[in-house]
Design a protein around this nucleic acid. Sequence first.
DNA 1: TTAGGGTTAG
Length: 604
Amino acid sequence: MLIKTGVLTGNSPRVSVFSRNKQVLRLFCSSDACYTAPSIDTVLDLVSKQHWSKLKTLLQRTSSNTLLQKLLSSGADPELILRYLNWSHKKLNLWHTLDLTLTLLHSLANAKKYSKIRSFLDNLVRHDKSFSISSLFHSLSMCNGGICANSIIVDMLVYAFVKNLKFDLAFEAFKRAGDYGFKLSVLSCNPLLKGLVTESGIGKMEFMYHEMIRRRIEPNLISFNIVVNGLCKAGKLNKASDIMKDMEARAISPNVRTYNTLIDGYCKMGRIGKMYKADAILNRMVANGIHPDEITFNILIDGFCKDQNVSGAMKVFGEMQGQGLNPNVVTYNSLINGLCSDGKLNEAIGLRDSMLCSGLKPNVVTYNALINGFCKKKMVKEAIELFDDITRQGIVPNVITFNTLIDAFCKHNRMEDAFALRNQMLDRGVLPDVFTYNCLIAGRCREGNLDAAKKLLEEMESKDLRADLVTYNILMDALCKKGESRKAARLLDGISEKGLNPSHLSYNKLIEGYCSEGNLRAALNVKTRMEKERRRANIVTYNVLIKGFCKERKLEQANRLLNELLEKNLIPNRTTYDIVKEEMMEKGFVPDIEGHLYSIWSCS
DNA sequence: TTAGGGTTAG
């Protein structure tokens, strides 16, 4: 077919394919002047009867492009021609030019044989490794197929890219389609929007949404729900609310999924009072006549649990049942995880038993939460027993099960056991991921064995696993603790070079490192740098710096930093209070923070 | 024919 030769790509193979075909033709003409090409009717008859071996013998001396050209101009059933094309590619490894292939696709579009185009393009995309969208679109626009047929083909091509997880190509095709005036539909745009949410930054999804509106590709309810979900997952809740206004303007009413998505967004926002906001959306939903479903309740229950309010979650659990809605495995898993995080392991196990009583089967997520609960309570022996128990029951441990236990071993200085478990997961066909390596790297760092940690970093990268922000923060922390803050600073530079955004934690660790080395100037420079890189110093940054200055007996400067954080409306926390008390006041220094003393003391 | 919920690391 076209792809393997590069005909579609417009690269150098284009020349080789054409010259090859010409050579083949010349050879036939000179060696056998008496050769008569088979009639189109004969070819079509053999194709329809699927007499492939006869056809193969008959076509031995025929140019595939010439034959396809004749078939197309004969007005034969395009489905039959497609059958020939698929066979010639698969069995004879014969290639055809881009223009001829597109002509066939046009015929199929005009005959409304859409499923045939879909599967052809799917096959094309699946096997292609060097696809040039611009050459394809150019040829398509030059063909006489009509804008409608072209749009259908391009729409299906975008869908084929998405289906084969080639999101970059799908996105490029979407953008180019606009340049050529091919009009896409929600059938391809919605899957691509969703792909962009999960695959890359939210920026591309936002661009695509606005571009859809500009190009008058009318988003439907599903498009809006995908966009709301993407924005919520990216923490852009205000923008998600704006989308609700866009829906209103287009007379599209949000449904239970829209509201659930938004409620979930607020639940996961991680701010004080988030559950009040989530509750406000719930009230708006009910006022608009949309009834909460099982998923709404699950979202709220999980929200309360993550807010460390398991009793609130239990109330919602009761209300859910009161409304005649049945809790499912997800409901119980959220509650069990909430109880485990709260250290209430017996209650969590009790809930697992209630699950069984009500006919629900706990799954690997349930047990991962329980195993994690044991690990966090330093009950590693019990965690392992549970692991063995569920394995015997036939529950297949996943990468999270292994990571949880590996982390527990690492934190208990049992590195041998951690690596043995890593080998066990490999034996069971569970591949270690970045989490696994981060746990192991952190374990090696805790031992003070930075060389072994770096070896693990190399090993993970050799397995195509990219180190993430957590990996770098672990390594920076280890270097700082070893008194090698300058090396940690170089690692911080490396984070940005790898296209990752250093977090507050990254900067704060380095500031802490410099402070513990007494290099206060370097620590302040890091603070200036983080502010330049639009990462506002937070309360931890100030606590670390104030403590650093206090340790070096530079109390006036520490006092200035204290005033600075208050001027920036940052709220002092318990640590701030302890530093002020122990490092300043108990040493006879009264901080000059008039007017703000109350907020400092109120933290106690 | 495409949209929403639960488990792990710094």
